[in-house]
Amino acid sequence: MKTLAIAFGLALLSAAGSAGAADLYQPEPAPQPEPIVQPVAASGWYLRGDVGYAFGHSRGGYYFPDGNYKEFDHTKLDDSWFGGAGIGYQVTKHFRVDFTGDYGSGADFKGHSECGDSSCYSNDTSSAHMLSLLANAYVDLGTYYGITPYVGAGIGGTHIDFGKFTSSTHCGGSACGGAYDLSFDYDGKSDWRFTYALMAGASVDLTCNLKFDTSYRYRHVSGGGMSENIVASDAYANPYGRSYDKGIDLHDVRAGLRYTFGGCAQPAPVYATYEQPSEPVYK
């Protein structure tokens, strides 16, 4: 009987110890997640400024010397410098748009025609100032070692302002009925013309929000009037002073800077999600 009582007491002590150990057990705390750093993009708005050189090409034209349209035998539009500025927005990492304005210095125009043989010819001269306003869209092709190549296209209008138009005619033989030299001045014509552009270039990161941009741009300016009726009044004055061109092609080489607003990109912590471990179940 005494032995049975001792065994029963030991069993009670063992059960009490197990219950106490269960009450004292605390689950280990969940591990603290480490932040995953992701970049925060700067504002998409940017300003740009450019300078460039335009290689001009005239597609030809017509003049109106005696009541009938005649085509120039040769036309030439000289090269010129231009400068421009614009504002744009980086829509996505690979797509952006901007609105630009470029003003070109006077590009000299010359039209040459022969009246019958080389002893009779006329030269028409003027100077054209051009303001192009274009809405542009670009596709950035990825950034490689800080360099981002891109292609783009634009559409808009160009205001062409032709200065005084001078027409000089020289005849030195029987082809024009005798030797003479005549010169007439006409009003230059100003108007807006439809323009489209195609671009390809690359930008280089100078700082986190400043880029150096260089590109080639092709601009086509549709045809229009170059001069109107005669200005000078003399014994040989006539009302046939109108002339037209078939269009102008401009091959631009330009370079400039793009400044993005909003400061530089900053890292922002993004915490991973961890599942809380389930509580232990005791039976």
Rank of each mutant, 00 (worst) to 15 (best):
residue 235 A to W: 11
residue 104 G to W: 09
residue 17 G to S: 15
residue 154 G to K: 00
residue 44 G to D: 04
residue 209 N to F: 09
residue 55 F to G: 02
residue 209 N to Y: 11
residue 161 D to A: 14
residue 191 D to T: 07
residue 153 A to P: 02
residue 203 S to Y: 00
residue 189 K to F: 12
residue 54 A to I: 04
residue 215 S to R: 14
residue 226 M to G: 13
residue 198 L to E: 00
residue 279 E to Y: 14
residue 80 S to W: 00
residue 72 F to W: 05
residue 143 T to W: 06
residue 65 P to N: 12
residue 132 S to F: 07
residue 69 Y to N: 08
residue 215 S to K: 11
residue 86 G to F: 00
residue 270 V to N: 08
residue 209 N to H: 10
residue 197 A to V: 02
residue 138 Y to W: 06
residue 208 C to A: 15
residue 144 Y to H: 09
residue 74 H to W: 09
residue 55 F to Q: 07
residue 174 S to T: 13
residue 63 Y to G: 03
residue 215 S to P: 07
residue 12 L to H: 14
residue 93 K to I: 03
residue 195 T to C: 08
residue 87 I to E: 03
residue 28 E to Q: 07
residue 242 R to P: 03
residue 187 D to V: 05
residue 111 G to F: 11
residue 263 G to Q: 06
residue 271 Y to R: 00
residue 161 D to P: 01
residue 241 G to A: 09
residue 41 A to V: 05
residue 28 E to V: 06
residue 56 G to L: 05
residue 277 P to Q: 01
residue 212 F to A: 14
residue 165 F to D: 02
residue 13 L to C: 12
residue 142 G to V: 04
residue 157 G to I: 04
residue 263 G to C: 05
residue 91 V to H: 08
residue 61 G to L: 02
residue 203 S to A: 13
residue 156 G to N: 02
residue 266 Q to T: 13
residue 8 F to V: 07
residue 276 Q to H: 05
residue 249 D to I: 06
residue 94 H to K: 13
residue 182 L to F: 12
residue 87 I to S: 05
residue 134 L to T: 06
residue 17 G to I: 11
residue 247 G to A: 06
residue 149 P to G: 03
residue 168 S to L: 07
residue 101 G to W: 07
residue 85 A to Q: 02
residue 147 I to Y: 04
residue 273 T to L: 11
residue 134 L to N: 04
residue 202 A to N: 08
residue 6 I to L: 14
residue 204 V to P: 01
residue 239 P to T: 10
residue 202 A to P: 04
residue 242 R to H: 10
residue 221 V to F: 10
residue 144 Y to P: 01
residue 253 V to F: 15
residue 252 D to H: 08
residue 101 G to I: 12
residue 23 D to E: 11
residue 163 G to D: 13
residue 246 K to S: 12
residue 112 H to Q: 15
residue 143 T to I: 05
residue 238 N to L: 09
residue 61 G to I: 00
residue 100 T to H: 03
residue 214 T to R: 06
residue 140 D to R: 02
residue 108 D to I: 15
residue 160 I to V: 12
residue 253 V to T: 15
residue 202 A to Y: 06
residue 108 D to P: 02
residue 202 A to E: 05
residue 24 L to V: 03
residue 83 G to C: 06
residue 86 G to L: 02
residue 42 A to F: 06
residue 124 D to C: 09
residue 142 G to R: 00
residue 10 L to M: 14
residue 106 G to D: 11
residue 145 Y to M: 14
residue 208 C to Y: 08
residue 29 P to T: 03
residue 166 T to E: 10
residue 100 T to E: 12
residue 174 S to N: 13
residue 186 Y to E: 04
residue 197 A to K: 00
residue 3 T to Q: 15
residue 210 L to G: 09
residue 186 Y to P: 00
residue 261 F to Y: 05
residue 199 M to W: 01
residue 104 G to Q: 10
residue 275 E to Q: 08
residue 268 A to E: 09
residue 1 M to S: 14
residue 270 V to E: 11
residue 43 S to Q: 08
residue 113 S to E: 11
residue 43 S to C: 06
residue 198 L to V: 10
residue 13 L to T: 07
residue 121 Y to E: 10
residue 219 R to H: 15
residue 155 I to D: 07
residue 158 T to Y: 03
residue 207 T to E: 12
residue 140 D to H: 01
residue 44 G to M: 06
residue 202 A to K: 07
